[in-house]
């Protein structure tokens, strides 16, 4: 299995990473190298093996439903690029 150049561009677009056509060829070679490793894993016969969801064989610890976090808006917003009326301002995301 290997990736085409257009698939590389698509993955880059989804990840919001700007990749020039020249860079894309290098990235394609690197990614296909990784796919080579994956193919080795794929070649292993896993029939009858239960899927593993996590590398550690322990389960989740839960917290009680209690409010423990105080309001720290002032501290958080002190390092935000732009705020107004308690809101974080970002470039407009709707036409």
């Amino acid at each position: 299995m290997s990736l085409t150049l257009s698939e590389v561009m698509r993955i880059a677009a989804l990840a919001r990473i700007a990749v020039t056509p020249q860079e894309a060829e290098a990235v394609q070679a690197q990614l296909n190298g990784i796919f080579g490793l994956l193919e080795k894993i794929n070649a292993v016969d896993t029939s009858g093996v239960e899927p593993m969801y996590h590398a550690r064989d322990v389960t989740l610890r839960l917290r009680d439903d209690e409010v423990t976090e105080p309001d720290r808006r002032a501290a958080f917003q002190a390092v935000a690029p732009q705020v107004e009326a308690g809101l974080y301002l970002v470039p407009k995301v709707i036409e």
Binding site: Q82, E84, L87, Y88, L89, V90, K92, V93
Partner: peptide, 12 residues
Amino acid sequence: SLHEDFHGMSGI
């Protein structure tokens, strides 16, 4: 997201 009047920006 609030898209109203924040000098052309969105408020979060």
